[in-house]
Amino acid sequence: MKEAHHEAHEHHGAHKKTYKYGMVVDLDKCTGCGACMVACMAENNLPFRKDNSDRMRSQLWMRVYKISNGRPFPDTDICYIPRPCQHCEGSGHHHTPCVSVCPATATDYSHETGIVSQVYTRCFGCRYCMAACPYHVRVFNWWDPTWPKGMKKYLNPDVSVRMRGVVEKCSFCYHRYQRAKNKAYAEGRRELHEDEYQTACTQACPAGAITFGDLKNPEHKVHELKKSPYAFRLLEKLGTNPKVYYVSTRDWVRKAGEAYAGEEGKSVTHA
């Protein structure tokens, strides 16, 4: 009985343990191949249209931006910035920008994992969260989702397909976390190994530019990588406190991560 109580207590304790999943993207390694975008779309059942060229309305949870320093040859330089949801934690008296504004509690910040979730069946499409997000990570389902004939058979059964009129966004492949957790529980473990839970984009990146893991866990690679003197986060000054870090040895790239970038940022052009 005592043993059972002890086990239950330990179990409760294990539940209380929190993680802070995040990402470190080495921009000097990123080639802009777009494999992360494709992997994300396939993994998360993202719909697409015959003509998907309208970037203002396409469903992209992971978007790769191409930026240039705007200087003439031979000083021209470009950089690709993969941008998933930044899973902001908020800081001070600010909550996660999108979470606090959702009127129907359809989006939530998990203190267990640090992941910002989206409840598609509860979202009623007011799009206030999209207005709140300065990173444009949230996308709206302007159409009913459709896939080419036969492709429905290849949809990921672990991820629900979203209906029109709701907002969606990157979940850090949360279903993979759940799957890994289930597997670990079945094996009598409470903790996940670093390689057990990895996002689709991380695994798809041929250059190994994306590293994913628990930012708080010293055994995970991201823990050290984020400490790099070349690491930065997008729009840090706003206080959104994102969990996606970027690394670049190039000054102009780091500068481009700031809001409006000032005088120096004027040379940054979006390509």
């Binding site: 129907a104 509690t105 979202c123 009623f124 499409g125 007011c126």
Partner: peptide, 15 residues
């Protein structure tokens, strides 16, 4: 709103 039939969620699941 994208899903007008769910408009009542704003009251039911009020944040």
């Amino acid at each position: 709103i994208g899903q007008p039939l769910r408009g009542w969620f704003i009251f039911w699941h009020a944040n």
